[in-house]
Design a protein around this nucleic acid. Structure first.
Length: 375
RNA sequence: GGUCUCUUGGCCGAGUGGCUAGGCACUGGUCUGCAAAACCAUCUACUCCGGUUCGAAUCCGGAAGAGACCUCCA
């Protein structure tokens, strides 16, 4: 996952926001009232479509808007502020043509996205709860100021629920990412690796609600480790002359899923299918050609790591890694020696002590290997 | 109250007319000094009622349940 190139602050772009509000006013789609500037939604709607994004009908919105106190400044309930005059006790305040005050809350997105991405850009993300009125108003502002709909594709991700219930501070079931990582929350049975959380979320489509539960999280953890194992296993698979599986179909299936509104669950299903084939090949029950193996490696690299932004936490470059590897392998050799002598007490002791250090020993016919014990 | 969305097997979760998604758990098997891990196999669901169709989880109507938005602030 790449860090953003820029993380602009709204308070650092007051001038841009004022300029944009001016343009809207010059276009005749805003009016001043008592030092504040409001967007004239009804007038805008005569020639444009306010509701194009959220699928709302303006008349219905108006009919259903409750009247609130202290909104006499607005000509209509649906109008929204482009600039708000600051009350005397308000701390945030800047000079503007209309008053000392602050920008309306939709302005920052429009002004900053225009500045850094241009009047038209490809993708705008955000939570579904922002679709209306925030994003709807953003479109209206940009159309009014720049004359065109700014965004090609909107990606609205859905809400997260916990045990079927909406996650919310007022409900007391709110869990922060930090708490997931440390496990310090009454609803969490254990701590979860950041990559587990990320993988878990990618197993559902971004437009669907996603339900957190310990059971679901632990299922994701196991599945994620299974995929990682495949990535580690891939380089040691022996190639054959002929192929027993249609790898290219598998791979293109994965990319087609991504092209279809970023359907990550289907991509992941393809990766699990690849995992099955690789494991079969590892057991000598499936044949893969050298190019199959190379293509699968590239497939895992491109999708899991580059596109989905997952990383193999424990193989991330770490100066101590080689030392750790060496030390543990040394201990495993000693244990092997003990086992040859049928000194099970010593063998079990080494295994148990390593487990206490979160190092899980796995015995097989070929010898012993180890991995970090995530539990 | 209005608008909109959702309801899939033990759990999570894809899927817009016919062709088994996938993961986890369960169960069986392989491996194994024991255990664990790993691997393989298996498990065939679509809230309810009615309709359209040769055929529906998928389309239409109705019911029930769940959720989002509809106000300030971001």
């Amino acid at each position: 996952m790449l860090p953003p190139s820029i993380q602009p602050h709204a308070s650092g772009h007051i001038i841009e926001q004022i300029e944009m509000a001016k343009k809207i006013q010059e276009a005749g789609l805003a009016y001043e009232s008592n030092g504040s500037l409001y967007f004239d939604v009804k007038k805008y709607n005569q020639n444009h479509n306010y509701g194009i994004l959220s699928g709302r009908n303006l008349d219905e919105v108006i009919a259903n808007t409750r009247s609130l106190d202290g909104q006499d400044e607005k000509r209509d309930q649906v109008d929204f502020a482009l600039w708000k005059k600051a009350s005397p006790e308000h701390i945030m305040r800047w000079k503007s043509p209309w008053s000392d005050g602050f920008p309306g809350w939709h302005m920052e997105c429009s002004a900053m996205s225009t500045k850094y991405l241009g009047e038209n850009f490809d993708i705008h993300g955000g939570g579904m709860d922002l679709k209306f009125p925030h994003h709807e108003s953003e479109i209206a502002q940009s159309v009014a100021a720049n004359g065109s709909n700014p965004v090609k594709y909107w990606m609205h991700n859905n809400m997260v629920t916990i045990n079927g219930q909406k996650m919310g501070k007022s409900l007391g079931n709110f869990i922060t990412l930090q708490q997931f990582f440390t496990g310090e929350h009454s609803l969490l049975e254990k701590k979860y690796d950041p990559m587990t959380i990320r993988f878990f979320m990618l197993q559902a489509h971004y437009r669907s609600t996603l339900d957190f539960s310990n059971e679901a999280l632990q299922a994701a953890e196991k599945g994620w480790n299974k995929l990682l194992n495949t990535v580690r296993l891939l380089p040691s698979i022996k190639s054959s002359e002929t192929s027993g599986a249609d790898i290219s179909a598998l791979i293109s299936g994965g990319f087609e899923a991504l092209d279809d509104d970023f359907n990550t669950p289907v991509l992941i299903a393809q990766l699990f299918e690849a995992t099955r084939l690789v494991n079969l090949a590892n057991d000598g029950k499936m044949t893969l050609t050298a190019s199959d193996i190379q293509n699968l490696k590239t497939f895992f690299e491109d999708t899991l790591f580059t596109i989905l932004g997952l990383t193999d936490s424990f193989s991330a470059s770490n100066p101590m890694e080689n030392v750790t590897d060496g030390l543990i392998n040394l201990i495993l050799e000693m244990r092997l020696e003990a086992r040859k002598n049928k000194d099970w007490a010593a063998s079990d002791k080494l295994r148990d002590q390593l487990k206490a250090l979160r190092i899980l020993v796995k015995d097989s016919k070929e010898g012993s290997t180890w991995e970090w014990d995530l539990n």
